[in-house]
Design a protein around this nucleic acid. Structure first.
Lengths: 223, 223
DNA sequence: CAAATATAATAGTATTACTATTAATTAATA
DNA sequence: TATTAATTAATAGTAATACTATTATATTTG
């Protein structure tokens, strides 16, 4: 499965970039090093100028791929959710029982990525960390409605919808399938963050994972 | 109760400000108009220069109260959580039954503020909107551990802990009381946001409130 | 009333987030 | 192969941001 997925290109709304970074070596270097740098210094301190220095190129060259760093963040996080979606569809496709299917999906969505595929220019372990620390910033903006209309969040929304449908399959009388689905996806990122920075606000640790907690939460609500 | 609360000053870690904004007329104008402006233009576009113009004063005067706009956000959100905590303690103090107590607390935490007290310089309705849209940005930073150590998030943490304790009172065998408490507080903000901007990702609307959803979620887990 | 202290305004700097222009390289075609 | 076209890269610049240092003006206190 890993080998299969590495060749699948995640399709991202072409309005988030000016020039497709997958189409050139420089574009791939932009993606590769922006992941390393955002992880290292955080999104606020990350600039195209610094990235230019790192990849031995110029700031303005980066601007020909992305309008600004916000669009680059949208690109990276869309890629991440698309990648998670592939894993989810792949891993659950052959499972017939709705309960088993949902359980597996929760696992995939709430897991923390431990190993990257080491083949492409995208480091999934660091990208997972970036999503935990920065994803909210991509939509907590004044432009969210405009950008939503342009489809910048469609991969994420599709993932929430898939999960909602699975919840519905398990129990079609449950009244809040969409809210539960969005709670799992957003909440899992939050629990991972708390585990790192506010351990007193979570029960998640080395033994109890967000997976364990959300599996319990969901099946208590659906039974 | 409203009349009582308006005179209660929320105590905020004095490291978040340089000079206490409650100690002068200018300070109060800074708080009052920063709330109006952050709500209107969003935290990213808000600057001390614009605030200075608005309050008929100078940028550098604002800098004598707050080191930077991040600290101002910490001040505003701490004030909000302190205010919520007061309401919660006040409203639940006399309730003997743990279930009733928890139910009431969930209501207070997950409600959207509809009316402000109209007495002070702080508009609670707008502040609630600011917390929904901007709170995450106050801790999703590279400085979070340092600032946490300095106690900048202590009011918020105390609130989560209070809720955790109430959950424990209802069911002391439940394994994830801290995670559930943090899920409610953070998740309610998220559901409010989705209701406004991504209605397809939530079941919350005019009829179903985040209160309804979280009450159901919590008591399903605890029974 | 003078001295100390607090407050406000002015002016400036380094950095950021871009944009416009020009130069160099690569690709296409005649 | 030579010429032109198109793409890509680098240079230089600008407006705005996020501050800081200095000076001026009130206000308070002894």
């Amino acid at each position: 499965m890993k080998y299969l997925l590495q060749d699948l290109k995640v399709r991202i709304n072409d309005k988030v970039y000016i020039k497709d970074p997958e189409s050139s070596a420089l574009g791939k270097r932009i993606i590769e090093h922006s992941i390393l740098m955002i992880d290292e210094m955080g999104f606020e301190s990350f600039t195209f100028k610094k990235l230019g220095v790192k990849i031995g190129s110029n700031e303005s060259s980066v601007y020909r791929y992305f309008e600004n760093k916000h669009k680059l963040l949208l690109y990276l996080t869309s890629w991440y959710w698309g990648w998670i979606e592939y894993q989810l569809v792949f891993a659950t496709n052959s499972i017939p029982k709705p309960e088993q299917k949902l359980k597996k999906s929760i696992e995939i969505i709430t897991q923390s990525i431990k190993q990257d595929s080491s083949f492409s220019h995208i480091n999934e372990v660091l990208l997972n960390k970036i999503v935990i620390n920065e994803y909210s910033k991509s939509y907590l903006t004044k432009e969210v409605d405009k950008e939503n209309k342009e489809g910048y969040f469609s991969i994420y929304k599709r993932l929430v919808t898939r999960l909602k449908d699975m919840i519905h399959e398990v129990n079609d009388t449950y009244a809040y399938p969409s809210s539960l689905a969005s709670t799992i996806i957003e909440g899992a990122l939050h629990q991972h963050f708390l585990k790192e920075h506010f351990p007193s606000l979570t029960d998640c640790n080395n033994k109890i994972t967000p997976s364990t907690y959300y599996t319990d939460l969901v099946f208590n609500s659906l039974k």
